[in-house]
Design a protein around this nucleic acid. Structure first.
Lengths: 348, 348
DNA sequence: CCTGTTGCTGTAATCGTTTGCAGTCGAAGT
DNA sequence: ACTTCGACTGCAAACGATTACAGCAACAGG
């Protein structure tokens, strides 16, 4: 059935279709891409020949000719972090509506790997890149260099010293909601468990936490600011540190993401610290597992679909005009999701 | 600094480098790819010019010429399932060692989406495809068609009616370990919570469960075989069904994956069914969250790195020889990880 | 001096598709 | 009858990199 010649894996080319239909490759191309004028008879003949041979376009050749791949690259710090995978899912949906596909890369939380990924996406002529930078400063050069070559938008996190589009949430506003809620639940002191200040999320969230806690007069001791990484293990370690301190843990532990919060609640169980009775705990991101914690986590829900849609829109816009317009920084306001790890109506 | 001409986004081409260095494109290519004889002087001149212009190869053009992209495609049923993401991570590592990259696609658990993804990967001339088919029968045609065109290996799951390489675990042997362990812990009756029999994992695991339970004389009622999907929600629903039945749940609930098991333990807490006191629960896959369950899940650890390494090896082998060799079916034996959701030493 | 060899470099074809340009042909306008 | 036009169609040149082949110089051996 299939013709197998040449070294290209036996694929049928446009000229074989042309030969079989007795026309030129130009006509075949016009029929198959639906561009240009072609008579009904030709259209039929070509279509028939293409079907018979099982022709499929070679998008490499097409991409070379068009310098457009209909593919967008995305780089995330860690593909095993559920927040990023659900973000990826949202982005994929948003792209699907434009007939584009996603080329996903994992930076393994390492700026050097990240730089390699960005370079290789650029070499592959993707139409644009969506990146959530893994490091708040070290990711800078590679991101900026890539942005100089093709449309790029940063998602969720932002790296300093770069001038590109960005879409994410307003971390400060989110933290205000969190602190207000904890305060209403009776918390008068609070700890913060985040990651080392190597990315914007962490910085911003800590900043928001500090500011609002100060506004409300909540006690925040220096030794209650615990910075490690975005992992369950780190959350567990943080609780160990807090529990060991004289006076025990504060009234609330605010976590920079849900993984940390899951670690915190788990460690609290192990240390027999009642949540939310003795300590209230909050997360961030609202990953699927947040509701599975014991107790289920109160957390900040990121509007992933909105974030993804805006990012895709920005990329499309950037691809459109040659002149780089002014940069857009879009901060969406997230929503607090109250579950069982905090006290809703004030102290019982 | 950068020259911006043409419609390719202002990228520097090999001929611009050649012009600047005062040599032919052939020489530039030879220098840059390190193939062929070039004098030291030329090498220096070309290198210098390339650096000055910030040249980067256009891998689209290279791919067209070489009909090789150094890219492998991977299609997974759901990118939000932690098992698959960690498998992806392993595959990426394994490929990295060969200087290849991964093009990841999400099939959204839908064979039609899957078929589209496979076709588009093939159109993009990836060197090979790794797929974990989302459906046990409906994925067949697309998978087979793709396998006819280029090297393909199925991972973890296997779809009926196809003739391709496969790497996964021996589900039957795994289930034997699970049942033996539960039996040693005193279980004399057991339920199975899996997904509808639309994929091989589910089928095989159920088969293994049935066989070994029968061997050991464990009671297995028809209404204890609960099939839904691979999700936490389904695990919760399954417990609701079991708890409502007269006589209550059996001594053990064997789950086809960890997500289901997490739902099961969660629902048991809600229904005040003691785990492992009243009911023992097991999972499958050993995702990171398995140890976070309350209680931590006893589960089957899949040797992800081995699986990934074998898959990459098979692809490389298939890419090497033109004649398709005999198919390899590699079943690795997984390891049981005992945690707190089962009784280790027999009934207390 | 002629031939063969080695070492380097350039010319041009090639991968598969798209598309500007030019050519053909029949129909319509003058 | 002679443009003019429009609808089609084909020719051939791109896109950017790789590479077989040929050409050239220098040099060794006969």
């Amino acid at each position: 059935m299939q013709q197998r010649r040449g070294g290209n894996g036996g694929r049928v080319t446009i000229s074989e279709v042309a030969e079989r239909a007795g026309v030129s490759t130009a006509t075949v191309s016009r029929v198959l891409s639906g561009r240009g004028q072609v008579s009904a008879e030709m259209r039929r003949r070509v279509q028939h020949a293409a079907d018979a041979l099982g022709y499929q376009v070679n998008s490499i050749a097409r991409a070379l000719r068009n310098s457009r791949t209909d593919t967008v690259g995305m780089v995330v710090p860690s593909i095993t972090n559920p927040f990023f995978t659900s973000l990826v899912e949202s982005v994929e949906h948003a792209l699907g509506r434009d007939g584009k596909e996603l080329f996903l890369c994992d930076a393994q939380s390492d700026p050097r790997v990240e730089a390699r990924r960005l370079a290789s996406l650029a070499a592959r002529n993707v139409d644009g890149i969506i990146v959530s930078p893994s490091h708040g400063t070290e990711s800078g050069p590679a991101v900026q260099e890539t942005a100089d070559r093709l449309p790029l938008v940063q998602l969720d996190r932002f790296v300093g010293g770069t001038d590109t589009d960005w879409v994410g949430v307003d971390d400060i506003a989110a933290m205000r909601q969190v602190i207000d809620h904890l305060h209403a639940g009776g918390a008068r002191s609070a700890a913060f468990a985040g990651s080392r200040l190597t990315n914007s999320s962490s910085e911003q969230r800590l900043e928001g936490f500090r500011r609002r806690a100060a506004d409300l007069g909540m006690a925040v001791r220096d030794e209650w600011i615990l910075l490690g990484d975005y992992s369950v293990e780190w959350g567990e370690a943080a609780v160990a540190a807090l529990a060991a301190a004289p006076g025990g843990p504060p009234d609330a532990i605010v976590c920079a993401d849900d993984l940390i919060a899951l670690g915190v609640t788990r460690a609290c169980r192990a240390h027999r610290i009642d949540v939310p009775g003795r300590v209230q705990v909050t997360g961030f991101d609202n990953i699927e597992f947040a509701r599975l914690g014991e107790p289920a986590l109160t957390t900040v829900d990121q509007p992933r679909d909105r974030i993804a849609a805006e990012a895709v829109r920005l990329l499309a816009a950037a691809a459109g005009d040659a002149a780089p317009g002014p940069r857009a920084h879009i901060a969406l306001v997230p929503r607090l999701v109250v579950r069982d790890s905090t006290r809703a109506g004030g102290p019982e």
